[in-house]
């Protein structure tokens, strides 16, 4: 797994994203894009709009990748199909389904 968000977001390699990366992207989407702002005093190291935009695109791609993996597993295990992404979240992150 990548060690920082910058690496995950800028290199565009989404195929190898794991469930925990998906959880982190959801966290990123929340903490970076929303919340109370003391206008004029907020300082973020990277331009937030671009980053969140890229993050969402990675999120979509990673969800689709997760679906493909799930589909393959389901076919192999001959289990019924599902339209839900079942991605395990880390213990310090909210539950993601």
């Amino acid at each position: 797994m990548r060690s920082t968000f910058e690496e995950v977001l800028v290199d565009g390699e989404v195929d190898s994203l794991e469930g925990s990366d998906l959880s982190l992207l959801e966290t990123l989407d929340h903490v970076l894009n929303r919340g109370l702002v003391i206008a004029g005093e907020i300082t973020i190291a990277v331009a937030d709009i671009d980053l969140v935009f890229v993050g969402l695109n990675v999120l979509v791609s990673s969800v689709e990748t997760a679906h493909e993996v799930l589909r393959e597993r389901e076919q192999q295990a001959t289990l019924p199909a599902s339209n839900a992404s079942e991605v395990s979240a880390g213990s310090e992150l909210p539950e993601i389904e």
């Binding site: 689709e64 979240a89 909210p94 539950e95 389904e97």
Partner: peptide
């Protein structure tokens, strides 16, 4: 396709 997550603080 759905991606659902939470519970979050009310960001």
């Amino acid at each position: 396709h759905f991606l659902t997550s939470g519970p979050w603080p009310p960001y």
